[in-house]
Lab assay of single mutants.
Amino acid sequence: MASQGTKRSYEQMETDGERQNATEIRASVGKMIGGIGRFYIQMCTELKLSDYEGRLIQNSLTIERMVLSAFDERRNKYLEEHPSAGKDPKKTGGPIYRRVNGKWMRELILYDKEEIRRIWRQANNGDDATAGLTHMMIWHSNLNDATYQRTRALVRTGMDPRMCSLMQGSTLPRRSGAAGAAVKGVGTMVMELVRMIKRGINDRNFWRGENGRKTRIAYERMCNILKGKFQTAAQKAMMDQVRESRNPGNAEFEDLTFLARSALILRGSVAHKSCLPACVYGPAVASGYDFEREGYSLVGIDPFRLLQNSQVYSLIRPNENPAHKSQLVWMACHSAAFEDLRVLSFIKGTKVLPRGKLSTRGVQIASNENMETMESSTLELRSRYWAIRTRSGGNTNQQRASAGQISIQPTFSVQRNLPFDRTTIMAAFNGNTEGRTSDMRTEIIRMMESARPEDVSFQGRGVFELSDEKAASPIVPSFDMSNEGSYFFGDNAEEYDN
């Protein structure tokens, strides 16, 4: 783990906690998980779902989305002020799938948001429990990260689609708070800032007046979040320049895209947490497990152990491969979309394939898809080993990566060399080191050039047997250095459309 220093740990961010010791953190995270579980059980009762239907990941996603929508204050306010045809701002819903006479049927349900809020609060001892809501947002974000390569979004903001390893959390809503900021990748933060800068260039009043003052505060806050992700002084200094700019424009845009590229080699610290679907927490609570009393951590053995003992089902389209669908969801559960496939294969105990080789589309089923041909199958979400999630980018030494994705962002704290394609990355730096950030740029390029592919990161860190909950005997895996390590390699994943 990167030293926490003055930073709060993510469990504290996750639970809005002030400084807590490890036991208190485990208890408050457990409380959050228990609340999600209780809410899910109650919703299944309301909807009269069978046990099997309640364990269907598509039903879980609909129920999670309903509660997130019920608590989305800004959108609710907007919907009330701008009524649109056929949208009731006070209601929320989605597809629920039921097994009827041996076939899967889709039923569109509609609930009062007020009623959903009441059920959620009741499951969370009367609190709004925003930490639990954020947790579900991060699960949705991790699922998107594993399912889609955001080529269009990258290109629109002047970045290269091969930089997708920097895009963790790119679909997280803005209201996801400190826990959300911690899991956002460098590219995601750059993209958010670039969008602001572009608006400022096109709209003279963007930075002016009372609204402009708020915009400015948001801009500086985002700059500080991004600065905190960088691990070298030169990158941090460049972020200070971007933040202090009187009138952010093209120079800042250039600096930010430069920094994003540099992060492929001088990786930023991005938190990883295993956020599971509500249909995993519900049955665990129903079986009598007391998360608050037992304590829970999002970055240790607990999620692995929970998945070892969970039964989750998914709808499967006619030509999809259930094992591939399982891999997709497994990666999402562990926030591992940008991790090295060699490491993932070792931990999972079966070969993890790149996205383009998977015969599976996303987990969600569109409303126009034919239910007649839908089957369902068990998702295999178990693992051979477990490993500690990392909050750091690993040290800054790398190795060759593949054509589709030119770097990785480690999820697990496991000893290995970190793949990246130096030639491709360095070719993108057209040696432009003039301007006010020239000395920093020169320094950053120097550090990137001296990074050695064969150097090892996370020295001495290994994986653990599932029986080793105290992480007492690390097993340090050895990897084939020459092997392909990137998930979005030469990829044809669908595009994420909101």
Rank of each mutant, 00 (worst) to 15 (best):
N498K: 10
D468V: 10
F479S: 09
S457Q: 12
K184Q: 14
I347F: 13
R162S: 06
A182S: 13
R221Y: 09
R305A: 03
K184R: 15
L172K: 08
V456Q: 08
R99K: 14
F304S: 11
E449F: 05
L79H: 12
Q399P: 13
Y487K: 02
G394L: 11
R342S: 14
A27C: 00
G431I: 05
R156T: 05
S467D: 09
T378K: 13
N417F: 05
D160F: 03
K227E: 12
D240P: 03
Y289T: 12
S84E: 08
L49P: 05
M440C: 06
R175P: 04
D72T: 02
G102W: 05
N76K: 12
F253Y: 11
R436C: 01
P419I: 09
Y219D: 12
R74F: 07
L307R: 03
T92D: 05
R75D: 07
K470T: 07
E465K: 13
S141H: 03
A472E: 11
P322C: 07
L341E: 01
R174F: 03
Q308C: 11
A182T: 14
P318K: 15
S377P: 08
V343H: 03
N498Y: 15
V476Q: 01
A286G: 15
V456N: 06
Y313P: 07
A85H: 01
L68P: 04
W139L: 13
Q405T: 01
G288V: 14
I33V: 13
M191G: 05
R99A: 12
A271L: 00
S335Y: 09
T147H: 09
N492I: 11
M159Y: 03
F230C: 15
K470L: 01
G490L: 14
I445G: 03
T45D: 06
L61H: 03
S359T: 15
D128V: 15
R106W: 07
V299R: 07
P474M: 09
N76H: 14
I388Y: 11
Q364Y: 11
G37C: 13
S413P: 11
F291I: 10
Y296V: 05
E46R: 06
S274E: 06
M222F: 05
E443F: 08
G34W: 09
C44Q: 11
G431D: 03
G462K: 03
G30Y: 05
A178I: 08
L172S: 03
N125M: 13
Q399R: 13
I445S: 02
E210R: 02
L298R: 09
N21M: 01
R75M: 10
S376P: 13
R174W: 11
Q311L: 01
L418D: 05
T157V: 15
V270E: 00
R8T: 00
S383W: 04
T378N: 03
C275D: 03
A387M: 02
M374K: 14
F346Y: 09
V312M: 15
E107Q: 13
N395E: 01
G362K: 07
C333G: 11
L79S: 07
I33K: 05
L353H: 15
V194N: 03
P474K: 08
A260E: 08
V299K: 07
G462I: 03
D491F: 08
I138D: 06
G435H: 04
S297F: 13
L172E: 06
H135D: 06
V155Q: 07
C279Y: 07
R317N: 03
I57P: 00
Q398C: 12
A263S: 10
A286H: 11
M440G: 04
T157W: 01
F230Q: 09
P453N: 08
R389L: 04
L379T: 12
E11R: 02
S310D: 01
N370Q: 13
M448D: 04
G393W: 10
C44Y: 11
T442M: 06
A260Q: 01
L61A: 05
R446A: 14
V343E: 12
R384W: 10
L276T: 02
I316G: 07
Q308V: 14
P453M: 07
S407G: 10
E64G: 10
D112L: 05
S274A: 08
M196E: 13
G435I: 10
G362D: 12
V476E: 11
D203S: 09
S176W: 01
R355Y: 04
E11D: 13
Y385M: 10
R195F: 08
G102Y: 08
K325V: 03
D480V: 15
S438G: 05
I119Q: 06
N124F: 14
S245C: 07
M426R: 03
T433R: 10
D127G: 12
R150W: 11
C164N: 15
S413Q: 05
M239P: 00
Q122H: 13
V352I: 13
A153D: 10
I444W: 07
V312L: 11
M371Q: 14
E192F: 06
A234K: 07
G158N: 09
G300P: 06
N76E: 08
G93F: 04
A428V: 15
M191T: 09
T360Y: 06
C333Q: 05
K214M: 15
T62G: 15
R195K: 13
A286L: 06
Q20K: 10
A493K: 05
P318C: 04
A182M: 06
P354V: 15
E292A: 05
R361Q: 02
P277A: 12
S245N: 12
M447W: 06
R150V: 03
I445M: 10
D290N: 13
A493G: 12
A85C: 06
P89L: 04
N124M: 13
I109M: 13
D240K: 02
D439C: 08
A123F: 05
A332V: 07
R65K: 14
R305D: 00
A428K: 10
L418H: 11
S314G: 15
T378W: 01
G37L: 08
A401K: 02
E81C: 02
N319A: 03
G30K: 08
R174P: 06
Y313K: 08
V456K: 10
G132N: 03
R261E: 08
I119R: 08
E53W: 06
A336V: 13
K77H: 06
S28E: 10
I109S: 14
P283T: 13
V414M: 07
V242D: 09
D160C: 02
C275E: 00
L68M: 05
K91P: 01
L154M: 08
A271C: 08
R267A: 02
S269C: 15
E114R: 02
A401V: 13
S287G: 10
K351T: 13
V29M: 11
T157L: 04
G158I: 09
G185R: 07
M66T: 09
D16M: 04
M238K: 09
I109D: 07
A2W: 03
R175Q: 07
L344S: 12
V194H: 00
G295F: 11
G356E: 10
M189G: 06
D127E: 06
S377K: 01
M159I: 15
L133R: 11
Y496R: 02
R384K: 14
T134D: 00
G282L: 03
L61Q: 01
K273E: 09
H324C: 12
L49H: 10
G37H: 13
T171P: 01
A146T: 15
T396A: 06
Q405G: 00
S274I: 00
Q364T: 14
Q415A: 14
S482C: 13
F71Q: 14
E292L: 15
G102T: 02
Q235E: 11
N395L: 05
T215P: 06
E494Q: 08
G394C: 07
L315S: 05
G228T: 15
N483A: 03
I445C: 14
S262T: 11
N250C: 00
I57L: 14
A182C: 15
A237Y: 07
G5P: 08
L49I: 14
Q399W: 01
A2G: 10
A123T: 11
G282P: 00
G17I: 02
E115G: 11
P322Y: 02
R74H: 08
P89S: 08
L266E: 10
S335R: 00
A27S: 08
C44W: 13
T232D: 01
K273W: 03
C44E: 13
D160H: 10
E494R: 04
K184H: 08
R74E: 06
R382E: 08
P173M: 04
Y313E: 04
T171Y: 14
R106V: 10
T92K: 02
L341H: 00
E443K: 09
F304H: 13
W139V: 08
A237S: 14
K229S: 06
K198W: 09
T45F: 07
E11F: 09
G268W: 11
Q398S: 09
V329D: 00
A472S: 07
V352D: 01
Q12H: 15
E339R: 00
K351G: 08
